[in-house]
Design a protein around this nucleic acid. Sequence first.
DNA 1: AGAATCGCCGACCGGCCGGTCAGTAAGCCG
DNA 2: CGGCTTACTGACCGGCCGGTCGGCGATTCT
Lengths: 231, 231
Amino acid sequence: MTDEKPPAAGAGDCDAITAPLCGGARQILDAARRLFAEHSYEGVSVHDIAAAAGVSKANVFHHFTSKEALYLTTLREAALQTAAEVESLVAGPGDHAGKLRALAGLILDKMLQDPQQTRLLLRELLEHGTERGRELAQQVFERNFQAEVSLFRQAQHCGAFRGDVDPVIGWLAMIAANMTFFLCRDVLRHNPDFNYADKPEAFLSAVCDVLLHGLAAPASAAPGRSREPVS
Amino acid sequence: MTDEKPPAAGAGDCDAITAPLCGGARQILDAARRLFAEHSYEGVSVHDIAAAAGVSKANVFHHFTSKEALYLTTLREAALQTAAEVESLVAGPGDHAGKLRALAGLILDKMLQDPQQTRLLLRELLEHGTERGRELAQQVFERNFQAEVSLFRQAQHCGAFRGDVDPVIGWLAMIAANMTFFLCRDVLRHNPDFNYADKPEAFLSAVCDVLLHGLAAPASAAPGRSREPVS
DNA sequence: AGAATCGCCGACCGGCCGGTCAGTAAGCCG
DNA sequence: CGGCTTACTGACCGGCCGGTCGGCGATTCT
């Protein structure tokens, strides 16, 4: 079912992303994206969006058929991404341990580069109260999954990764650490033991080390007092 | 600032959890908890809660000073948990690898055992749009953190875990996998490659194996075609 | 020059929101 | 028995919600 306005002759219809948007519609979308990302669909009113965009509420409805149509447009824009960079990385040269580090870095960079986009899509995935936007976010998630997990499969196939571990588990552990860093960063910032809130690279380096080599001490390590971790 | 009703002589005041709640208040709280967990604070009206509890809206306000007070009461109840089980596990006997598996299992069991409680608290941590309830959830998070990370520190101290890895990283990788399983389970259920949606034990077993031993193939493994993973 | 179109908006709509008021019935106490 | 307290509710409140209507000025087209 479509909520989009049937396009009038010459009039911009902004629900579907087709023609370049006129200035007003762009402002509205940018404001909507910012507010929906921060406060969720229910936490934002059209009045809020209009005020943030510097236009009237009626103008919002001039460009978009409904609040929900506006929201779905912000999600469609957020979902306009490809897995091309991941695919290039996977297909490129390099050892698999290095590729894993690069992949984890790429994913977290993208998340931190556009937190609004990340938040919009993650919220749709994690909040299962409604179906709204869920399909869009799920398409992105699945597209990324295929590209990302192929690295784990390739590494296993080449013998670089263990053959007795499901590549999907490796993928999930990697993506879980990234998501948790992104989502919990502000909470963890208050934790004096968590020194990585402003050091995503250090965080990923440490996580990838654990994912590759595990926590268990090598069997050859002498029992007894361990060395203190490097800080 | 407190929104709670000053307690009238003999009258139940349900905002603060003190005296046992009368039947009506209990029904309201149970309905509130279910609806807030599923739809968030903004996505639920007092009308919805009253209807689900089988009482009038005015009765909700008879027992609770405001919608927000009701919400905070559901969060306080959700936050009434201790880290005693984790502390017992950490202090008990057993090798650390086994303890890690047991800890991860305990955490995921508790999440799956009361998904509403989990969702209420996680939402407060992950959605940073408001401060409401954030402090309550953060207290729970930090209390659990201290208990959980102590296992990683203990394992490292005993030489069972590597000395060159920050125990907080190990902890985060473990908790991240648990959170992601809990939050993304329904999304991942649609993924034919993810065989664990209904097998949390198998999932955790595989994740703990990776956390302990890593993904990298042992150096002694013959290069070339890897064995297929056991399905 | 006049008509048509476009981008925009103030005023307004009905409905829902959180919350209050004034009241009822039942139970308890002196 | 009368007064008080408690648990509860229908009706109602002002404000905000999503959304519409009728109109304006500028621009474009014939």
